[in-house]
């Protein structure tokens, strides 16, 4: 009986497991293999190179620049996206007429075509005729700045865009977290004089730690892999200031055809993502400990 059930279990997961093997696990091994070879997409020759691709990648200034760009993109877009999403979630977590309409509107950018959204935000940032510059111009302020064409501002412009295009899912996650906080906690808190801002700091925020952790991990992972907005809006420019790792690997593999080197770089990215996630996990654990002890 037991063995029979075991066989049925494997039978039901077999198609999905085969898919996992073929499209995730085997490719990881394949990519690791490729990363050890000097190999190009367009020629059949390959030559064993050992860790040469890795040592080359880590020492290459343009790859270092890409890593640094991804890091500063994530460091801005993740916290900013988190704070805005939490604020909006609190705003729409009220019993008000028409609240679902607002929630729906805030979700729209997240389900939109990424290419179309990138085109729209290109307009938002245009000099003189763009949305922001038009408003600045109306107020008689400087309206000449091409936000996406300026080394100093291009990366921040893309990061700020992501705060709004990724708002929907993050907002809903926080909304779920907020709804899950037992009302009794606020009633008990009110007896101890914790209302308003104090209740937010002492009850709402601690209760949202698991949600926050989930949002931080998932948005960091996607921030470190951002591609479409860069491809559509800046092509990594100006002066490689928005050349993030996701875009850098794309050009290495599909423009320069250096599949071996690109695979090595993608493994460096993978290791970075896993490491960052582990650090975040550690931090959340210690946070939770602090609260249960208090």
């Amino acid at each position: 009986m037991e063995r029979k059930e075991s066989r049925w279990g494997w039978l039901f997961i077999a198609p999905a497991f085969a898919h996992l093997l073929l499209f995730a696990l085997a490719p990881i091994l394949y990519a690791f293999g490729l990363s050890l070879f000097r190999t190009r997409l367009i020629s059949p020759e390959r030559e064993f190179a050992g860790v040469e691709n890795y040592t080359f990648a880590v020492a290459e200034p343009s790859f270092q620049n890409a890593l640094w760009n991804s890091a500063r993109y994530a460091l801005v877009s993740v916290p900013l996206g988190l704070i805005v999403a939490l604020a909006v979630a609190i705003l729409v977590n009220q019993k008000l007429k028409g609240i679902t309409l607002f929630r729906t509107i805030y979700y729209i950018p997240a389900i939109s075509s990424g290419v179309a959204i990138a085109m729209l935000w290109q307009y938002v940032y245009l000099p003189e005729t763009g949305m922001i510059n038009s408003l600045l111009g109306m107020l008689g302020l400087d309206n000449k700045k091409a936000f996406l064409d300026d080394v100093g501002s291009a990366m921040w412009a893309v990061a700020i865009m992501s705060v709004f295009t990724g708002l929907g899912p993050r907002m809903v996650l926080f909304l779920a977290g907020l709804v899950g906080i037992p009302q009794e906690l606020y009633e008990a808190g009110a007896l101890d004089g914790a209302t308003g801002w104090r209740a937010f700091l002492k009850i709402t925020l601690p209760m949202l730690i698991p949600t926050t952790f989930f949002v931080v991990v998932t948005s960091t992972i996607s921030a470190l892999q951002i591609f479409t907005p860069i491809y559509m809006m800046t092509k990594g420019g100006p002066e490689e200031s928005t050349d993030v790792v996701g875009y850098h690997i794309y050009t290495e593999a599909w423009v320069n055809f250096n599949t071996g080197l690109a695979s090595a770089k993608s493994f460096v990215l993978l290791v970075a993502i896993v490491a960052v996630s582990l650090v975040q996990f550690r931090m959340m654990k210690s946070q939770l400990k602090g609260y249960s002890a208090a």
Binding site: A24, P27, A31, I221, A262, L269
Partner: peptide
Amino acid sequence: AAFGLFLVSMMFAGPVTQIPVYLM
């Protein structure tokens, strides 16, 4: 273990699979 493998692949496999899947 199998379920864990699915979850981990969902979270982390993304960046490395593009080249091998293309070649496959």
